[in-house]
């Protein structure tokens, strides 16, 4: 909170406990328009829980969430999504039996308020078609639009996972381990893909793959036991003994 720039997403003092376990402890972070920030931390640090608190899947015990300067703390997950908060999931969360095009259509039509239309077929809507084509280019699925999602390779399904969120044209995109389970080649494709997205899109990325963190993020936030323990550039994170200790675990010290 050093400067007074306009934040796209802001969490102020978010706290959440499950019984005696503090999964989020006074978490405060800001994301500017176009900022790419990685959240790293060991397993169980509360990264996905933080996403669930930001998207409204879980209600915080204390704290405020602001999207584009507006308080969204009391809004349902779907209302937050309609205001421009998109997310992808750590495990593929797709529509079985539908084609890539049909899946992307669902996302685009909801975002454009066309899910309410009783009579018009979004399949013949020009605005939706343009969005789908653009999204397919971003996520490298232009040639797979009419394939059923079940027929896609794992890497392509990961790309669709991100594409579903992108077809809604969010202001802020929360990506939960976009390269989870991916081969090194597919990880490279994902990195390229993320860097090709519009520069005004703000992204918060949970990631374990350090190549992706260094390649895609301008800022790194390190979470441990639900608490932010480090914030800085990827270079600063790399140089920090604190980050090394947390991330590599205690055995790192013994061998140092």
């Amino acid at each position: 909170m050093s400067d007074r720039r306009e934040h796209m997403l802001e969490a102020r003092g978010i706290a959440k406990s499950f019984g005696a376990l503090k999964v989020a402890n006074n978490v405060t972070l800001e994301l500017d328009a176009g900022e790419r920030r990685a959240i790293i931390g060991p397993n169980g640090a509360g990264k996905t829980t933080l996403f669930n608190l930001l998207t409204g899947e879980i209600a915080p015990d204390a704290g405020t969430v602001l999207l584009d300067q507006k308080d969204i703390t009391r809004l349902t997950p779907d209302a937050r999504a309609r205001r421009g908060l998109g997310r992808s999931f750590q495990k593929n969360n797709l529509f079985r039996g539908l084609t890539v095009r049909e899946s992307l259509t669902l996302s685009a039509m909801i975002a454009l308020g066309k899910a309410r239309q009783f009579w018009r077929d979004p399949g013949s809507d020009v605005e939706i078609a343009e969005r789908i084509d653009q999204t397919a280019l971003w996520v490298n699925l232009a040639g797979e639009l009419d394939l059923p999602t079940d027929a896609l390779s794992y890497g392509a399904r990961r790309q669709l996972e991100v594409g579903l969120a992108l077809a809604a044209r969010p202001k802020v995109l929360l990506l939960d381990e976009p390269t989870s389970g991916m081969s090194p080649e597919d990880t490279g494709i994902m990195l390229e893909l993320l860097n090709s997205l519009p520069s005004d899109l703000a992204m918060l990325i949970i990631e374990h793959d350090m190549d992706l963190v260094y390649g895609a993020a301008q800022r790194v936030t390190v979470l441990n036991y639900g608490e932010i323990v480090f914030e800085g550039t990827p270079e600063e994170a790399r140089a920090s003994d604190e980050v090394k200790r947390i991330y590599l675990g205690d055995w790192g010290d013994h061998h140092a």
Binding site: T76, P77, D78, A81, L94
Partner: peptide
């Protein structure tokens, strides 16, 4: 997923 995409 539909809820995450904004459907009430």
């Amino acid at each position: 997923r539909m809820r995450a995409l904004g459907l009430p």
